[in-house]
Nucleic acid binder design. Structure first.
Lengths: 216, 216
DNA sequence: TTGTGTATTGACTGAACAGTCAATACATTC
DNA sequence: GAATGTATTGACTGTTCAGTCAATACACAA
């Protein structure tokens, strides 16, 4: 005996929320329409009614995941920093913190990356997202290059942005596998010193603009 | 009517080889005992006979994959470089080249990473491999720190090694998703300038030891 | 009230697969 | 050449799922 009706959009939302919870726990491979339905408190058939097929649900879930992921935000506190180097460094830190503070979301995203290897549709969606993410780094990357033309002679803003993204993704990958054993704080310090020539700790000396640019 | 007998080890090898091919094409999720058997030219039942269960086969495949992956090798040409910075840079380049020259293997490894999120046994194996990989970077990382004590004050060799690995993994991830569109050569140049303060191109000036160390 | 379209259910179907097993072939030892 | 142990097959089983569908309930309009 069919239950109470809900407006279409609302039902979809409920089901997607349940799907997200299941996917976060069991992974994309362990995603079962039956379990999603149970969690959403509806029938198996209804899930198919709203999403047409399992694949349809999967793609909707991906859209939902991407849409609800915070877009890279370069806030005022970052813009307030003097040198582009400092800004880029602050941005990296912010992003790594964000990824590690949302392990479920990060793991699910990772699952979709993996799926994207063999699925063209998923890949295309992921790529769009990747591009957007990289593009958000672009202005800063350009600024860094402009501030240090000699050092970055021949380096494009695109490539520099790509490298920045790599750091973040690579860090995420490692922290996912080596849970606990991988100290993000320590990692960040090392990354900063290595990449972006950090100023000495607790010194009052102005940040990074000190060097480079004077080269060659 | 049962076919000709093969020595146990040899059969396992044949089946694993077939499993690798199937996994490379279809991914771990698409791995089917039936298809593996067909490719190996044996029966479905025989695969189970030799590997006990699908999971057994999966773990054996992982062992095989890890065992057959080239261990990080710091060759004489790298050791010949003067400064630790240059050595580390050369090593990064070598590894990125290697990963991108074996896309199938890299993709499969990626698949296993993904599986490791939800499977403790796989995770443990992957972690061991990760540790080994990171450990191989360790001596160089230590050398870099020793060469620039001021710059890396408070940074451990472990963290520096972890960052190096991140670069490589992050690069691999991006190049897998943004196939074609992602220019590894350009990426490498950017990474080198950003991370390791590259010497100016085609200049005869001695490498990196120039700076840092003098700081503070 | 009647009618119409949409939402919802639960039972059913069929396919895909992992795993089992008895039968059989081969190799080796005695 | 009989006996024994191991490899190999193919048919079978049971389960797990995605997807279908007819029946039904609800909302709303006429």
């Amino acid at each position: 005996m069919p239950g109470t009706k809900e407006p279409q959009a609302e039902r979809r939302r409920q089901i997607l929320a349940a799907a997200y919870r299941v996917a976060a726990e069991r992974g994309l491979t362990g995603l079962r329409i039956g379990e999603i339905a149970a969690r959403a408190g509806v029938s198996h058939g209804l899930v198919l009614f709203h999403f047409k097929s399992k694949r349809g649900l999967l793609l909707a879930l991906l859209d939902w995941l991407l849409a609800s992921t915070t877009v890279l935000h370069v806030g005022p506190d970052i813009l307030a920093l003097e040198s582009p180097f400092d800004q880029l460094r602050a941005l990296l830190r912010q992003e790594m913190d964000r990824l590690s503070s949302e392990p479920q979301r990060t793991r699910l995203t990772f699952d979709f990356w993996s799926a994207s290897i063999r699925d063209a549709t998923i890949r295309s969606k992921m790529r769009t997202e990747f591009d957007r993410y990289r593009a958000a780094f672009r202005p800063l990357a350009d600024a860094v290059i402009a501030a240090h033309p000699a050092r970055f002679r021949g380096v494009t803003g695109a490539a520099l942005a790509a490298v920045s993204v790599s750091f973040i993704k690579g860090c995420a990958v490692q922290s996912m596998i080596a849970v606990g054993q991988f100290d993000i704080a320590e990692y960040l310090v090392a990354a900063e010193r290595l990449i972006l020539e950090a100023p000495a700790r607790s010194s009052a000396r102005p940040p990074s603009r000190v060097r480079a640019a004077s080269r060659r």
